[in-house]
Simulated assay, not measured.
Amino acid sequence: MIETVELQAVARDGSLRRVKLALELAPRPMLSVELEGRDLGSGSGDNVFVALMNARLILEQEGQLLCCQGARVNVFASGMLQQFSGGRQAYVLTDKQSLADSEIVDVLAPASPDEVVTVAEQRAFVFRFFKLDDRSSGQA
């Protein structure tokens, strides 16, 4: 079964464009990306959150940021939540003591253009939030 999600993408100049994502879960989560009717390819991964990060990287090559909850700077899918929800849900990180107290969002739900960032910016925020050293290349 394929689920279609229609969202917006925002460019650096603030202009908005229409994005259609087609989510296929089997055999492995994959998000096909269509920008205003043009097929850009697809991002895949072990779960929906990872597939979304890879789809976002495709859009970033076009100078676009996907306007979805999973692209907000302070949204993070813990390993346990990724396993529980297949990566479809993630936590909104706040200064609360525990992730258990955090809001949970659908990573493919719409978000405001002023809330979304690049994959690298989101990754850097998460590492700072948890006070971790990021020794990887920054790729999803």
Rank of each mutant, 00 (worst) to 15 (best):
S102M: 15
L57C: 14
Q83S: 12
S112M: 13
V48G: 12
V73L: 15
R28P: 00
S112L: 04
F130A: 10
P27M: 09
G43W: 05
D46P: 14
Q8H: 03
L93H: 03
R17E: 02
R128D: 11
Q139G: 15
V19G: 01
L59K: 02
R123G: 02
N54A: 04
R128S: 07
G70T: 06
M80V: 11
S112A: 15
S112H: 09
R28K: 09
T94Y: 07
Q122K: 07
L7S: 12
G70S: 04
L7C: 02
E115C: 08
A124R: 02
F125I: 05
V73R: 07
A90Q: 06
A55L: 09
Q61D: 12
L99Q: 10
Q82H: 09
S15P: 00
A90K: 04
A140Y: 11
C67T: 02
R88Q: 02
F127Y: 10
L7E: 12
E3C: 11
Q64Y: 04
L132C: 10
S42W: 14
V92A: 11
F125C: 04
L57H: 05
R123C: 03
R28L: 12
V75P: 06
L21P: 01
L59I: 00
V75E: 08
V117N: 08
L25K: 14
A124G: 09
A11K: 00
L23R: 06
A9F: 00
L108T: 04
A71K: 00
V19W: 06
S85W: 07
